[in-house]
Amino acid sequence: MDVFMKGLSKAKEGVVAAAEKTKQGVAEAAGKTKEGVLYVGSKTKEGVVHGVATVAEKTKEQVTNVGGAVVTGVTAVAQKTVEGAGSIAAATGFVKKDQLGKNEEGAPQEGILEDMPVDPDNEAYEMPSEEGYQDYEPEA
């Protein structure tokens, strides 16, 4: 019985440690998101679009440190934060509304985080759909 109880105690310690790591990862992701939003706020009209992409990228980098179902929630929060940063930029006159959601080359930025393969159960990952990809044929 002692062996059984000791095993359960060790398992509990492992769960607590994993929860603490997840909590730490979420806190880091939130900190990076805040950094990115402050970065966007300090940019001029020309830099705002690039700044919004930076927020998304920093958040995406930190999301990889967070495991399990938390990833889905962090990704949703990050996307809403990026959308909010863009709205703030438009409201303050840093950028025109028609410039939001495009990178410096004018290509749409939507789907940055949505296409990231995420499995809350950590069982399997699927690649994003290939609808947006084109076949590449090298020139002879």
Rank of each mutant, 00 (worst) to 15 (best):
K102V: 03
D119S: 05
K23M: 14
E137P: 04
E137Y: 06
K80L: 08
A140P: 13
V40P: 00
L100D: 10
D119A: 14
G93I: 13
L38M: 13
E104I: 07
S9D: 02
E61L: 10
G73A: 14
E104H: 08
V77P: 02
E13L: 02
K12V: 14
V49E: 02
Q79W: 07
K23I: 04
V26A: 04
F4S: 00
A91D: 03
D2S: 03
F94Y: 15
V52Y: 05
E104V: 08
M116R: 13
A107M: 15
E114T: 15
K60L: 04
F4V: 02
V66K: 02
D135W: 09
E57N: 10
A91Q: 08
L100T: 08
G31V: 04
N103D: 14
V16L: 12
K6Q: 01
G25W: 13
T59H: 02
N65D: 03
A30E: 00
G68I: 13
V15S: 00
K96C: 14
K34H: 03
G31Q: 13
M1L: 00
F94R: 01
M1G: 00
P120K: 05
G86C: 15
Q24E: 13
E83S: 03
K102W: 15
E28P: 01
D2P: 02
A124Y: 12
G36Y: 14
K32L: 06
E114I: 11
G31P: 00
N103Q: 08
V118N: 14
E83P: 05
A76G: 06
A30T: 06
A29F: 14
E139L: 07
A124C: 14
V77L: 09
G7L: 15
V52S: 01
D121H: 10
V49K: 11
A29T: 05
S42C: 05
S9Q: 11
P120T: 09
V55A: 05
K97L: 06
E131F: 08
A17F: 10
G68T: 15
T72Q: 10
V16E: 02
A53H: 12
V55F: 07
K97H: 11
K96A: 12
E28G: 05
G132Y: 09
Y125N: 08
M116E: 13
V40I: 13
K12A: 04
Y136V: 04
H50F: 15
A11K: 00
V49F: 06
E46I: 02
Y125H: 09
S129R: 04
Q109G: 03
E126I: 12
G67S: 12
L38P: 00
G47Q: 14
P120F: 09
A91T: 05
K60E: 01
E126Q: 04
V37T: 01
G67Q: 08
N65G: 08
S9F: 15
G67C: 15
A124S: 11
G106E: 10
L113M: 12
E61I: 06
V70T: 02
V74M: 14
Q62A: 11
G101H: 04
G106V: 05
G73E: 03
E110K: 06
G68W: 13
V48S: 00
V74G: 02
D115E: 08
V40R: 02
G86Y: 15
N122M: 12
K21I: 10
G84W: 13
V77G: 03
V55P: 00
Q134W: 13
E131Y: 07
A90H: 14
A30G: 01
V26R: 00
G106C: 11
V66G: 02
E139H: 13
K102D: 04
P117H: 08
T33R: 01
K43Q: 03
S87G: 09
Y39C: 05
G14P: 01
V71Q: 09
K34Y: 10
E13P: 00
E28Q: 14
E20H: 12
L113E: 12
A19W: 12
G84K: 12
S42I: 09
A53N: 12
G86T: 13
V26K: 00
G36L: 10
S129P: 11
A91Y: 14
Q134V: 03
P108R: 08
A78F: 14
M116D: 15
G41N: 02
K45R: 11
K80P: 02
M1E: 00
V3A: 03
V77F: 06
L100F: 03
T59M: 04
K45L: 15
S87Q: 11
K32I: 07
G47W: 11
V77A: 14
M5G: 01
E139A: 13
A19Q: 01
F94H: 05
A30N: 00
G41C: 10
V37Q: 00
